[in-house]
Simulated scan of single mutants.
Amino acid sequence: MAVPKKKTSKSKRDMRRAHDSISAPGISVCPQCKEPKQPHRACASCGTYKGKDVLGSEA
């Protein structure tokens, strides 16, 4: 069974984990209702995507 010969330092351990953090999702603004929304998705408040009504008139 593989066993490390030397202890991995805190610096090396943390450098290896530097890319594992998660980032916040991108936020854009709906051109119709000016509410925040995720890019490339229909607006949850007004139901439009690229200027077209795709979710029906729920608002």
Rank of each mutant, 00 (worst) to 15 (best):
S9M: 01
S21C: 10
S28G: 09
P36W: 00
T8S: 11
R17G: 07
S9C: 00
C46V: 05
K12D: 09
R17W: 08
K7Q: 06
R13W: 04
R16M: 10
A24R: 15
S11G: 06
C30D: 08
K52V: 12
P31G: 10
T8V: 12
R41D: 01
G56V: 04
S23Q: 14
M15V: 08
A44G: 11
R17Q: 12
P4D: 01
L55F: 02
S11E: 12
V54Y: 03
D20M: 12
K5H: 08
D53R: 07
C46M: 00
S9E: 05
G47H: 02
R13L: 11
K52Y: 08
K7H: 06
K12T: 11
K12G: 03
K37C: 01
C43W: 02
H19I: 13
I27T: 15
H40D: 15
V3E: 09
S21R: 15
K12H: 02
K6C: 06
S11A: 12
S23W: 08
A24C: 07
I27R: 12
L55T: 01
Q38K: 12
C43P: 00
P36N: 09
P39V: 06
G26Q: 14
A44M: 00
D14H: 09
E58R: 11
S9D: 03
S11F: 10
T48F: 05
R41K: 08
R16D: 08
K50R: 09
H19T: 15
K37Q: 11
S21P: 03
I27A: 09
A44S: 06
E58S: 07
M1T: 09
P25T: 08
V54A: 06
C30E: 09
K12Y: 00
G51S: 07
S28N: 11
D14M: 13
S28Q: 13
T48L: 07
S28K: 11
M1S: 13
C33A: 06
A42Q: 08
S9V: 04
K6A: 10
H40M: 14
T48H: 04
Q38S: 11
M15I: 05
G47V: 04
C43R: 00
C30W: 07
C43A: 05
G47K: 03
P31Q: 10
Q38I: 04
H19R: 15
Q32E: 13
D20V: 10
P39R: 04
D20A: 13
S28C: 15
E35C: 08
E58T: 07
R41V: 01
S11L: 15
P31S: 13
L55N: 09
S45H: 05
V29N: 08
G26C: 08
A2Q: 10
R13A: 13
R41A: 06
D20E: 12
K5C: 04
H40F: 15
V29A: 07
P25L: 10
K50Y: 05
I22Q: 15
M1F: 10
K52T: 11
A42L: 05
K37W: 06
K6R: 14
M15N: 13
Q38R: 14
K34S: 12
A42R: 00
G26W: 04
K50N: 03
K7T: 03
A24I: 14
I22K: 14
R17T: 05
A18F: 07
P36T: 03
P4T: 02
D53Q: 15
L55A: 04
E58A: 11
K6W: 02
S9G: 03
S23C: 06
I22E: 12
P4K: 00
S45N: 07
R13C: 03
K10T: 02
K7F: 04
S28H: 11
